[in-house]
């Protein structure tokens, strides 16, 4: 419906008296071609390079690169990390956006700022803080070593760093949505006799489901693709603590171009799939992003 409105708006703009038909057409095409040229140079060309290099020596070497045990381990680790991080951040995002949209409390704006913090902070710093806390020289390092718990250079460290980096995505998607949709439907449900859980699952969750799906997709994409923070805490142990992005870097540095780009193509496919799902979601509901 909003699309309909914008059509009307541009038609109205074009019919505005005093506008030269030829000049405005020229301006329009100039803008469109400049944008397209930028996209081609900066987005499509690199993407194409990934696939061209990956398949450069034929299908055989492409699939062979996945049979390498280290590569398989990296893919597995990435999937495990995402499987832990995404549900946790979904729950956190729901809780935080619910609290922010439905209640007034002291420190609310502070909480909103905190949620945005991981976006503002460089990913390397995000990783470094965990090293400073849980590393051997860190605050809890000695204690952790005494109790034989390893966090840094192990799965827990990777999960923690990824969790930190991706936690704004669901919350930031849901907060404006919940604020916009208001509280009336929930209040109606309560006066009709529904309890808290029932109101949440039957009214609130369906109301925000597409915003939630969108937030989860973004969160997942970032969780799988994160490099900087994970790089600091992982220790790059082949077959043990290398995630896909780290593994790609190692392969590349070893001049194993086909393998590097084959793994990279997997990540790229993930991004493409994310975009496809996102478009589907938007097409399915006419839900448009406001930011």
């Amino acid at each position: 419906m909003a699309g309909h409105g914008s059509n009307v708006h541009s038609a109205e703009l074009a019919s505005r008296p005093g506008r030269d038909g030829l000049m405005s057409a020229l301006a329009r095409w100039t803008f469109i071609s400049v944008s397209l040229a930028f996209l081609a140079a900066l987005l499509f060309a690199p993407l194409a390079t990934v696939f061209v290099t990956a398949f450069g020596k034929g299908l055989g070497p492409y699939f062979a690169s996945f049979s390498d045990s280290d590569t398989a381990a990296a893919i597995k680790l990435t999937l495990i990390t995402a499987a832990i991080v995404v549900p946790l951040n979904t729950i956190f995002g729901l809780a935080a956006s619910w609290a922010i949209a439905k209640f007034d409390f002291k420190g609310k704006s502070f909480l909103i700022t905190l949620i945005d913090l991981p976006i503002a902070v460089s990913p390397v710093i995000s990783g470094l803080v965990y090293v400073l806390m849980f590393g051997l020289q860190g605050w809890f390092g000695a204690w952790l070593q005494d109790h034989n718990i390893s966090i840094i250079f192990a799965l827990p460290g990777i999960v923690l760093a990824t969790l930190f980096v991706t936690f704004p995505y669901v919350a930031r998607e849901l907060i404006p949505l919940m604020e916009q949709l208001g509280n009336d439907e929930e209040e109606a449900a309560i006066t009709l006799g529904a309890g808290g859980w029932m109101t949440f699952f039957r009214v609130t969750l369906p109301k925000i489901r597409w915003g939630l799906v969108y937030g989860v997709i973004l969160c997942n994409a970032r969780a799988m693709g994160e490099f900087g923070a994970v790089s600091v805490v992982s220790g790059h142990i082949r077959g043990l603590t290398n995630t896909m992005p780290l593994h790609i870097e190692i392969l590349y540095n070893e001049y194993a171009f086909v393998s590097a780009f084959a793994v990279a193509s997997l990540l790229t496919l993930l991004a493409v799939a994310t975009l496809v799902i996102k478009t589907l979601v938007e097409w399915r509901t006419g839900y448009r992003r406001r930011r």
Binding site: I190, T191, G193
Partner: peptide, 29 residues
């Protein structure tokens, strides 16, 4: 609590459950 008062409330902006059909809305209670 509002849940146990057994009143019917109608809001200015309707507050219908937007993802439910008319039938499901009415049958909610």
């Amino acid at each position: 609590s509002a849940r146990d008062r057994g009143v019917g409330l109608v809001f200015q902006n309707y507050a219908l459950f937007r993802h439910m059909s008319v039938a499901d809305n009415i049958e909610f209670a």
